[in-house]
Write a protein that binds this DNA or RNA. Sequence first.
DNA 1: CAGTGGTCTAGACCACACT
DNA 2: GTGTGGTCTAGACCACTGC
Lengths: 268, 268
Amino acid sequence: MNNAPTSPAELGDPLFSEGSSTISVQQSPAFSPLYQQIKALILQSLQSGEWKPSAAIPSEMELAARFKVSQGTVRKAIDELAAENLLVRRQGKGTFVATHAEQHVQYRFLRLFPNSGNLDSEGPAQREIIDCKRIRAPADIAKALAVRAGDPVLQVRRVLSFVGIPTILEDLWLPGTPFKGLTAERLRESNGPMYALFESEFGVRMVRAEEKIRAVLPDTDQCSLLKVKPAAPLLSVERTAFTYNDVPMELRRGMYLTDTHYYRNTLN
Amino acid sequence: MNNAPTSPAELGDPLFSEGSSTISVQQSPAFSPLYQQIKALILQSLQSGEWKPSAAIPSEMELAARFKVSQGTVRKAIDELAAENLLVRRQGKGTFVATHAEQHVQYRFLRLFPNSGNLDSEGPAQREIIDCKRIRAPADIAKALAVRAGDPVLQVRRVLSFVGIPTILEDLWLPGTPFKGLTAERLRESNGPMYALFESEFGVRMVRAEEKIRAVLPDTDQCSLLKVKPAAPLLSVERTAFTYNDVPMELRRGMYLTDTHYYRNTLN
DNA sequence: CAGTGGTCTAGACCACACT
DNA sequence: GTGTGGTCTAGACCACTGC
């Protein structure tokens, strides 16, 4: 079989004739490898919700048949998606859509660890929703969420405590439209991580995030909520979280107490 | 050719007989894929200095011949090493040993960025070596460097300034033996990143690092060196840097001014 | 042009999980 | 046993680099 470059074909799509020798479908420039195209197709299925979080996607052989490429090509596409934490491979079982729920690490994006002892030694965090209201987006929030200033957004404030000690104060903003119907009640009712709730209730999967970290002093509100003195330095963590296609879906400003905990980062 | 599991063979090593059908050299448990064994062999050559930083390693075909495996297996081994930033692939040219020098990013492990403008907008950092002396390792330093308390270590203090503003104060400790001969002079003479000097002068390549980040207040020395008030919160960044095989080779305690800059992290 | 890494295929077999 | 992902091979061709 010749392997001149061809476009991957969805089921039932017309094929380019196999026998012909040098039909160049994609020439440089703008050459994209087959496996990248397959990756994009899989990504589409993930976005469209064809495969739900924690469900298994079709086997490599099935996908190879569907896209009319070899298993190795599908494999390379899945490899990259697994490296980006969008898929999880489990030998002997299948490939699954990654999820923020039911993962071993309770908070996938939280980089705060206790000074000593492992992560679970202090048990699960206590969560308290302070506030949850609909507001019109100020300019800076709007910019971060890629909406227009004045558009409705949800503003949430909460405190996370470890072994009873308030440690994290978070303000977060969500675009109003995708999160229509989110209330303090529903936040309080949910057990798992907030991002798990976003997945199951609003179909919004956070895929990637960027954080800007600074050392700051708290304002008076923050002092009382975290029970610290005004002179106590806090770690300011401003996170923008993205869904598929780098669409921003959350802005989060956290104040971390770093006496008993530290923010861990690994450099490669 | 059968592909029953075999050990990779260095040039001249005796082979396991190819024809025999079911000689199981490595059974589960402790099964290690061939490409992992190849990866370990390549790693050895990197450690031993067989291939110097920025030099090209042998081509995939050559390595495949040397290790008596297929090109695909070598490829997978190199893929992983490239993903870990130990090797750099350049299409059409070859595969090269990664280096801290001559990289596009001046400081590969520095995560501090100006609030606005890109990285180069403020030009290169100004470096000032405050101090460099030989001391006997206190307990905490010794533990981090995996040496005995009291063993000789080098202690360096320096300030980095951007557009003339002192922004980073760093104290760092290096094990005495591998860095014998390092002086303030030699640090001042060098142009590029410190890690580039370590590579070229001491044959120590930093491969990976872990950072613990906190918000703290400066002591009086730090105040004067960074020209800040005692109440100014600073970002404390404690880094342990590792060479090959996760051997710690540096402990670095940095105080970052985060008024005009921020520490950036990306979560996947 | 030759040499390098990069893509793609097809087929074989191994390790693992379920039933 | 069957089906899944994981490894390994061999060979072909493509894209990029530099002589």
